[in-house]
Design a protein around this nucleic acid. Structure first.
Lengths: 205, 205
DNA sequence: ACCGTTGGCTAACAGTATTAGCTTGTTGGC
DNA sequence: GCCAACAAGCTAATACTGTTAGCCAACGGT
């Protein structure tokens, strides 16, 4: 009996197909049994390549994070300021819309301690660093860029999550609502650049 | 042998305890076996009260939605405009922070078709209606309040989800970042009230 | 006091991940 | 070219899930 010739990458590739096929819940529905069946192999054989189901999910998350990073970088290259921020937000939503299952994997937070999550951590750090780089063109005071990055992430991530999860009832006008959000982010970040850096609302005469 | 004297509400109550005990992943870790053990009953007995694990999750979601609605209503009563919006956002985050597991249940979208999700649908509609009511004080044009509601929901939900999921690395200054988000939402919604209602960026002289 | 309803039980089935241990194909060293 | 070591598959088994079927006894109303 010949052997299947699997590898870790091959297993991850099959897992990605399965995640993509499952829509927004594709990641949750990912199962070793189905991956093994699709690979033409018995379930325990996968452990020669993957370690565990959770590890396989982490590998999927890694791919998704890298794809999201390169897509965002490609969309924002050559742009700066509001232009770059708009492009970033739209690239983000476009990726989530094109790959709902993979975007769900992006949400998986890496363990801040575990050694085997090191790659995952740096990939996650890379994508938020990209957001920081895009916001660099706004001339924010140093102690405010963290707030700006968080606000931007929260806004577009929240919108995308609600959209994918069916949280918005009427499918119509979603584009316009997203545009409204992006406008708000742009003006909000520029306002943050002009705001005082002290947390207290003390006016500076 | 005496009987345990369970009821649907009792089962849901135990499920809520279990969800609360599990932190942000409490809902995902909810299991009929553990609920039954905690109730001192065999697992299949629960089916006399609940229907399925998914149904139990829906009941948990219902409770969470109702709690979130009443908490939000209590926080915004007697307030209007920016004041009300700020109170709503903080109440939302406070509830998620106090009950991470239950807040995860809020994210469960009800099936738009299924008859048994009717209660769930109306509960979900009620909480977004409350957001709409809070925004009423901003004098938004009719076709813009949908956008405003969505933007507000996306912003605070996104922040809360990232915070609970450990998406923000540094635990410090989270309050200030959230304040920045809320400020942005307030100015963004007021700006939306003054914006033209036509989707095209045609200036109106 | 009976008798139907209801809430519990056990048994069984179909899934899931995971570990242990075996066998066999492949490949590197001499 | 052979042989040993390693790698990649397998089966068997364990321990969990949820779920259905069918039985039996406790409770409540007449």
């Amino acid at each position: 009996m010949p052997r299947a010739g699997l590898s870790r990458d091959a297993v991850v590739r099959i897992a990605l197909e399965q995640v993509d096929a499952g829509g927004p819940t594709g990641l949750a529905d990912l199962t070793l049994a189905k991956v093994a069946a699709s690979a033409g192999v018995a379930t325990p054989s996968l452990y020669k390549h993957v370690g565990s189901l959770a590890a396989l999910r982490r590998h999927v998350a890694l791919v998704a994070l890298e794809e999201l990073t390169t897509a965002s970088a490609a969309a924002t290259v050559g742009r700066a300021g509001p232009d770059a921020l708009r492009a970033l937000a739209h690239a983000w939503r476009a990726y989530a819309s094109a790959h709902p299952g993979r975007y769900a994997a992006v949400q998986l937070a890496p363990d801040p301690e575990a050694a085997e999550d090191a790659e995952h951590r740096t990939a996650a750090a890379r994508v938020v660093a990209l957001v920081g780089a895009v916001l660099h063109g706004f001339d924010l005071p140093d102690d405010r860029t963290i707030d700006a990055v968080r606000v931007v992430r929260a806004g577009v991530h929240g919108f995308v999550v609600l959209e994918l999860g069916g949280g918005f009832r009427l499918p119509e006008d979603l584009d316009r609502s997203f545009d409204a959000l992006v406008d708000m982010l742009v003006t909000g970040v520029t306002a943050l650049a002009d705001a005082p850096s002290s947390p207290d609302p003390q006016e500076q005469p």
